[in-house]
Structure formats: C-alpha cells, structure tokens
C-alpha cells in the first residue's frame, strides 16, 4: 500500500490479443479506427489503436510495435497524440 510510485519502462513490442474496427464512437475520434488490446512482455495489457495497417491483414497474437500517432481531436479541434501500435514488418528489428 505504498504511496511511492516508480516508473516501469515497458517494451515497445508486444502481441495483438484482439482488435475491432470501430465505426461508432463519440465526437473527436476519426472513424473508423482499429481498437486493440496488446500484451507486452512485462505482463501489461494496453489498449490503443492499430495504425498504418489494413485491418484485413491483422492476425491474432501477431507482433506489433508502438509508435506515436494522432488518434483523434479534442473539443477545440486540437490533435490528440498518444502511443498506438502497428504490425511489425519483416526485416524490422
């Protein structure tokens, strides 16, 4: 129950646990987008979007890697940037 928090550096690569092409969401999100859960090796599951990929090319448990992307826009139209994932291409390391 300590109040002392510490940072944990997570791997940038993980595996795609599941995903969905989302066509209905509140204003601000660019539709459709691919929502996904990605499992990282540190036993952390993160939610974000899959970007720069054809949804039909996605496979269960495939390796994906993190990158920064614009995921949507806030109430005044400013871009919302955060981490997202994209499939690891052959030759990536």
């Amino acid at each position: 129950m300590s109040e002392n928090m510490s940072s944990l550096k997570l791997s940038a690569e993980g595996n795609l646990y599941s995903w969905s092409v989302v066509h209905a969401a509140p204003k601000g999100w660019s539709l459709p987008f691919v929502a996904a859960y990605v499992d990282l090796p540190e036993d952390v599951r993160v939610f974000s979007h899959i970007v720069d990929a054809d949804p039909d090319s996605l496979k269960m448990d495939m390796p994906v890697k993190a990158q920064i992307a614009t995921l949507g826009h806030d109430e005044i139209g400013a871009p919302f940037e955060s981490y997202a994932f994209t499939p690891v291409q052959k030759g990536d390391s």
């Binding site: 969905s20 989302v22 209905a24 969401a25 987008f33 929502a35 979007h49 995921l71």
Partner: peptide, 8 residues
C-alpha cells in the same frame, strides 16, 4: 481517453 467504447 484512448477511444474505448462498450461495443468495441
């Protein structure tokens, strides 16, 4: 905050 909605 990253776009989760119940249908997804």
């Amino acid at each position: 905050s990253h776009g989760l909605v119940m249908p997804a």
